[in-house]
């Protein structure tokens, strides 16, 4: 019997979109569509096993080999600096990482910039390259409130449409990096399930090209 490919999917809309891609290229697993609380689904016929994990944990499962491949946002990869192969840009879940603040905020001034963010590593790296001294305020959600309450000068966060920012009288000030979902693979798994993983990549790449 062929070995299973273990695939870590991020819970939520991105994971569902990613699963649609896998299904359309022949890695379907019908039981995953059933409404239940199971976390692991396998299809012996296609040799795939899926599991749903918290989006920010996908790279951890892959790096430690519990999953051979996984779907993860570039934001999380950049933040965690995981030691994995980043094989494909899936072109879904597109958004951007940006510096944002109340309208008219000046990013570069003569005092230390207070930055509220869920992504301290990305923020630190970005401002380091600009030689801007900063103070990081690590938050876990509702980042937009920080500048309104004058707890921070700016935020570093994901911007999709910009609606949340607008509604809170804020605007994107500087773009840091474009974000989209990536297919990542464990480095050792890629050696020993090389044929299956390469085949999977080629099929996804072909599907993407067909769409473009």
């Amino acid at each position: 019997m062929a070995e299973y490919i273990n695939i870590a999917l991020p819970k939520g809309r991105l994971g569902e979109k990613a699963y649609d891609i896998f299904e359309s290229i022949g890695y379907g697993c019908p039981s995953i569509r059933e409404q239940n609380r199971k976390l692991i689904f396998e299809n012996e016929e296609n040799g795939v096993r899926y599991f749903w994990v918290k989006p920010s944990d996908v790279a951890v499962y892959v790096e430690r080999g519990a999953a051979d491949v996984g779907i993860v946002g570039k934001d999380i990869l950049l933040e965690q600096g995981s030691d994995v192969y980043e094989l494909l840009d899936l072109g879904i879940g597109k958004c951007r990482m940006a510096v944002a603040g109340l309208k008219g905020t000046r990013v570069h001034s003569d005092h230390t910039l207070r930055v509220a963010t869920k992504f301290p590593n990305i923020a630190r790296e970005y401002f380091r390259r600009q030689s801007q001294e900063i103070e990081i305020i690590k938050l876990h959600g509702s980042i937009e409130i920080a500048p309104i309450l004058n707890m921070s000068d700016v935020i570093v966060d994901i911007v999709e449409t910009g609606t949340t920012l607008k509604e809170n009288n804020m605007e994107p000030l500087e773009d840091i990096v474009q974000i989209s979902a990536r297919l990542i693979a464990n480095k050792a798994g890629y050696k020993f399930k090389s044929r299956q993983i390469k085949e999977m990549c080629e099929k996804i790449a072909a599907l993407r090209e067909g769409k473009e």
Binding site: E63, R64, G65, A66, D83, N186, K187, A188, G189, K191, F192
Partner: peptide, 9 residues
């Protein structure tokens, strides 16, 4: 070098 069953080099 990698061996099957160990996730890292």
């Amino acid at each position: 070098g990698f061996v099957d069953g160990i996730p890292k080099k």
